[in-house]
Design a protein around this nucleic acid. Sequence first.
DNA 1: GACTAACGTTCGTCGCACTAACGAAGCTAT
DNA 2: ATAGCTTCGTTAGTGCGACGAACGTTAGTC
Lengths: 152, 152
Amino acid sequence: MAADSPHPRPDRLRALPSRLLGLASMRADRLIGDGLAAVGARKWHYAVLATLQEYGPASQSELSRRSGIYRSDMVAVLNLLADEGHVERTPDPADRRRNVITITESGRRRLAHLDALLADLQKQLLAPLDEHERGELVRLLRKLTGREDEEM
Amino acid sequence: MAADSPHPRPDRLRALPSRLLGLASMRADRLIGDGLAAVGARKWHYAVLATLQEYGPASQSELSRRSGIYRSDMVAVLNLLADEGHVERTPDPADRRRNVITITESGRRRLAHLDALLADLQKQLLAPLDEHERGELVRLLRKLTGREDEEM
DNA sequence: GACTAACGTTCGTCGCACTAACGAAGCTAT
DNA sequence: ATAGCTTCGTTAGTGCGACGAACGTTAGTC
């Protein structure tokens, strides 16, 4: 191999916040993605189920706004969840443009399962940090993304 | 705006570290991506130029390892940088499989320019955080991604 | 001299964020 | 009432970043 030049200065790349964020996010994505894939789920499935359970039944576009998924992509997610029997999609009698999405009993069980799995994966993800640091990281990220308003 | 439904329970989604990381990273990506695009650059160009300047000339695969870009994708990046005259790609006489990539004077100027731009963008990115918090965030991210070894 | 491995390169895949457009349905105003 | 705007679900498609497969070329190894 070529002479590894002595790198006296730790490069700026390693300290670049945007880069660190990207790196951390990539790891997280992979960890969570793989973990969920192992049980045949994707993060959107979890997001939708959780949103449904917490906010109650909603139309697809409301789900989109609440969960952050584009309504274009919501279709496929709901198709899958409906096929698996985790949600029900019924036309809204009050507004015939809308579908009302409801979580089923099976969906609740699925969500509970995924919740446990997710909790474990988050632990793995944050393993290098101690308890206080984990809290700090979450706080900082919330502040950074403008989500620090609602208390946890 | 739509009636914000009373959400009595702060949902788990908002506090999920992996999700916050993804959100923050997306914002960062966009901010930096747009900022760099405004001057016709991409983050990989910066990464490669910075790596070259800090570690000196190297083969493409070494650049890949050092900067984190896949060697498949390195080709296009170097094509562009070479076309713009920011790097030189010459065959390595010592190993004819390799190319030696060298940063040019023009590349150095470009890098300096991008450095200034990047510094500004990072400031924008971290605007919601105070000085101490920025340091903490970087520290936590480095620890999280296993890059806390080399001091900054 | 045959095997193996690394290098640069091309091509293709996968997932994600996002846009455009469209028919169906609701809302509003004149 | 009807014309015009908006919203909803849906389809299709774009762009990009991360990643894998394979190939010809070249080095090193037995």
